[in-house]
Amino acid sequence: MEIIMSFVIGFLFMAAVYLMLSKSLLRIIIGTGLLSHGAHLLLLTMGGLDGDAPPVVSPGVSNYADPLPQALILTAIVISFGVTAFFLVLAYRSYQELETDNMNLMRGTEDHD
């Protein structure tokens, strides 16, 4: 299971890097979304995938899953949700204002001001 997860995480990171290296702002934002998904899956996998039962105390169960990575991931998901939403609003506003979503035109050197 860990092997499959590693491949999935690697694929997510790969796709994220590919998207973030493109010029279009929207693709970059989708890339950051994939990047944080990859990071969350990694956190889950590194916490250990053994443990059959949900981490709620019930009689006759001893092999609980580790609750801590789950709590951490929930926190991280909430945060990345907020940041991505903010980023989207910002991208929309700057598209209106700067009239481009091409990062090449947003360099901000003297000739592009």
């Binding site: 907020g82 939403a85 903010f86 989207l88 609003v89 929309y92």
Partner: peptide, 10 residues
Amino acid sequence: GVTMTIIQSI
């Protein structure tokens, strides 16, 4: 509140 603020502002 936060979700709706974001969606309304777009």
